[in-house]
Design a protein around this nucleic acid. Structure first.
Length: 223
DNA sequence: GCGACAG
DNA sequence: ATCTTGTCGC
């Protein structure tokens, strides 16, 4: 299996390919959400990708893949754990999304290469990183209203690596960062637009739901 | 050395 | 991630 040092070397190489400016289609029709589900009492993980109509949020397609984990959870090397099931699921899609929102950081990462960057560079697709909690970086006061945001600044060089974004009034923020082929401002606006009713964007909520179903189905069928 | 640490 | 229902507080 891949060693920690090898994984870090891969990140250092691939990070140079990340594009932090908008390079999306003129019109976004299909947006994708991804999530990975872990089984409580085995080493199975299920990844799901859900395709939604950008304006109506109607589900267009879902693809999932369940398998054994191939890499341990190490903060900073998260993508090596979650990429395999997500890539397998992505291969099953017969329609491609214009943009993907994944559940984890992009540039808001120790080496500026979180899951969203790794997925974006690998698929050569626009990807937004949207994490539920912070991995690194510091941010200042955040106002209470929906849509309030604060810059997330790296501890080492003080560079802007993401935004803490309040998607609902008085609720903990989510952490938005560039994955690939999108700017931070565009990424932030899209996450806010997709978080219509809850803290997390609908893409993530729906992907989470299907990943759970995929895990249950896989376990049931393997009996 | 200690704490923090996406899921 | 996974433990998980009712309960405390605004």
């Amino acid at each position: 299996m891949l060693t920690t040092a090898e994984a870090i070397a891969i990140q250092e190489t691939l990070k140079q390919q990340v594009i932090c400016t908008d390079q999306l289609p003129a019109t976004i029709n299909i947006i994708a959400g991804t999530d990975v589900e872990y089984d409580k009492d085995s080493s199975l993980i299920a990844g799901s990708i859900v395709l939604l109509h950008y304006e109506t949020l109607e589900v267009i397609a879902v693809a999932s893949h369940c398998m054994e984990v191939t890499f341990p959870y190490i903060p900073g090397l998260f993508s090596f754990r979650e990429m395999p099931p997500l890539l397998r699921a992505y291969e099953k899609l017969t329609v491609q999304p214009d943009l993907i929102i994944c559940d984890g950081q992009g540039l808001a990462h120790q080496r500026r290469f979180g899951l969203a960057c790794h997925l974006g560079v690998t698929l050569d697709k626009p990807v937004i990183g949207c994490g539920k909690t912070r991995l690194c970086g510091q941010y200042g006061p955040l106002d209470e209203p929906r849509g309030s945001m604060a810059g997330l600044y790296a501890e080492d060089d003080q560079s802007l690596i993401g935004h803490a974004l309040r998607t609902q009034a008085g609720i903990n923020p989510v952490f938005v960062s560039v994955g690939h082929k999108i700017s931070l401002d565009t990424a932030t606006a899209i996450v806010l637009k997709m978080a219509t009713q809850y803290r997390l964007p609908e893409t993530t909520r729906i992907a989470d739901h299907y990943a759970r179903l995929a895990m249950e189905a896989y376990k049931e069928q393997s009996k």
